[in-house]
Design a protein around this nucleic acid. Structure first.
Length: 504
DNA sequence: AAAAAAG
């Protein structure tokens, strides 16, 4: 096994990586770092969760050297704000033993802090296109010395929605530069297009050609959702034995928010990430999920790419994605860094053709989704969901989830009081459910975080939830992205029987 | 057509 120390990397960077307990290099790192260090242009392709960020990050940091000269010399462009935060943190780690300064530049946040860091002489910029172009246009970001340029999730960055912005950005950086493009997916036409921005790039595919396109560590289960109560089945999957964290993907922002509310009402410890949420809340939600304070995240495709969270054991596609690439990236939120994971996909009647496409493109060899969960018990067997109720499912939340509910948000308590006249309507219902099969379930995750939690007593989760829930920071309503109060939303949902919004 | 990305 090749280690980072074997790859010609400066000792202080090797030490910085080792401080996180990482010694061995993944194949993509082993192959791209020795080429990136001397400045070779690279198109780097490797499966999800196999270390691409260090693959481009180590050469960027090392090539800047320890030159104390201020000013932006490296630019890393990513497609989402949360990914900007994450890549910023990874690069910041690599620079922890040298003076190189890194800044994250992305929208939805106050300009001030970002501008201050630029003025203070930040040398590496990680950012999303809109804010980068915005600040460059205001002459607050000077890219004319950025001789290191990286597009992370490069195929996405060169996709129609981003291409015009990326072209603008390439006009602002030096013509003579070191350019690296990385992604798990690099369709031929995109590679051809990418060459316009590179000089004599070498295309590295760290994938074993025999392995196919998908991560071998991920098990894919696909079910027909025809006449299926998906909320109910998803609730049941969340009770799978040995479940760690779970990411649930929806097609629309509205569907994501609805599911957050629904699973929250059922007592699960759930948060969301989607574009209708305020940026502060998006980040708080991601951080809570990464830290293990929550174990369910409902997201749109904003979280499909790049997001790296430890111990995600399940990905659930509430709605099947349109593209095979998106499927692969979504599923790739689990099975990272050599761990195993399960991807469960529900295929609605009108989406059968999408599965046909994905199945063909990714060579699954399963032309039809499994009939439905009821006519095929595989789902529960494959997922280690304790045997029990057939037909209508119970939705006993996991022990951990109930624990998190023990200090209800003020908003929720007020809600219940308003509806019941006494304060404990919802809570009592949840308590009754707790006695069932839930206790045994999810012990792996439960133990880790319970210990954590009792150490910090009730304070941490409560403060966290309060801050997110009540929207006290900006007065703009926090999680009530649609401008409705929680009681309003809940009533509306009840009337519609919990079904998906009509327009979705 | 949706989601993302500037405000």
């Amino acid at each position: 096994m090749t280690t980072f120390a074997d790859l010609g990397i400066d000792q202080d960077i090797v030490d910085a990586i080792a401080a996180k307990g990482i010694i061995d290099a993944f194949p993509i790192q082993e192959q791209t770092i020795p080429l990136g260090l001397p400045g070779q242009d690279i198109i780097g392709q490797a499966k999800t969760g196999t270390g691409k960020t260090f693959g481009f990050g180590v050469p960027v940091v090392q090539r800047l050297g320890k030159d104390p000269e201020h000013g932006v010399k490296a630019l890393i462009v990513v497609p989402t704000r949360e990914l900007a935060v994450q890549v910023y943190e990874d690069i910041d780690l690599l620079t922890s033993n040298r003076s190189t300064s890194v800044v994250a530049i992305y929208g939805g946040k106050a300009y001030e802090g970002q501008i201050d860091q630029l003025k203070a002489g930040a040398q590496i910029v990680v950012g999303t296109p809109g804010r980068l172009i915005d600040l460059a246009g205001q002459r607050l970001l000077d890219l004319s010395n950025a001789t290191e340029v990286v597009l992370d999730e490069a195929d996405k960055m060169l996709d129609l929605g981003f291409l015009a912005d990326i072209e603008k950005i390439f006009q602002k950086v030096p013509a003579v530069r070191h350019t690296q493009l990385f992604s798990a997916t690099m369709p031929g036409p995109i590679v051809a297009l990418a060459r316009r921005f590179m000089s004599n790039p070498i295309h590295i595919r760290a994938n074993d050609p025999d392995e196919g396109l998908t991560q071998a560590n991920i098990k894919h289960l696909v079910y027909r959702a025809h006449s299926l109560d998906k909320d109910e089945v998803i609730a049941r999957i969340l009770q799978a034995e040995g479940r760690g964290k779970t990411v649930i993907f929806t097609r629309t922002k509205r569907a994501a928010q609805r599911l957050v509310d629904e699973l929250g009402d059922r007592g699960f410890n759930v948060g969301g990430v989607h574009g209708d949420m305020g940026q502060e809340q998006r980040e708080r939600s991601m951080a809570a999920f990464k830290a293990g304070k929550r174990d369910v995240l409902v997201a749109t495709d904003v979280a499909a790419r790049g997001i790296d969270v430890d111990d995600v054991t399940h990905v659930i596609n509430h709605t099947i994605p349109d593209e095979d690439k998106t499927y692969l990236h979504r599923a790739g939120r689990t099975g990272r860094a050599g761990k195993t994971g399960i991807a469960v996909t529900f295929v609605d009647w009108e989406d059968l053709h999408k599965w046909a496409l994905i199945n063909r493109a990714l060579e699954f060899g399963q032309p039809e989704p499994v009939e439905t969960y009821s006519s095929s018990p595989h789902l529960f067997e494959d997922l280690n969901i304790p045997a029990g109720t057939k037909g209508r499912l119970t939705t006993a939340p996991k022990t951990q989830s109930v624990k998190m509910q023990r200090a209800p948000r003020p908003e929720r308590a007020a809600d219940a009081a308003a509806e019941q006249g006494s304060g404990d309507g919802t809570t009592r219902r949840r308590r009754r459910r707790r006695g069932g099969s839930g206790d045994k379930v999810g012990s792996t995750f439960t133990e880790g975080t319970t210990a954590n939690e009792s150490a910090s007593s009730d304070a941490a989760p409560t403060v966290e939830r309060d801050a997110e829930g009540a929207g006290t920071h900006d007065g703009k309503g926090g999680e009530h992205h649609d401008g409705k109060s929680a009681p309003q939303r809940r009533r509306r949902r009840r009337r519609s029987g919990g079904a998906a919004p009509a327009g979705a």
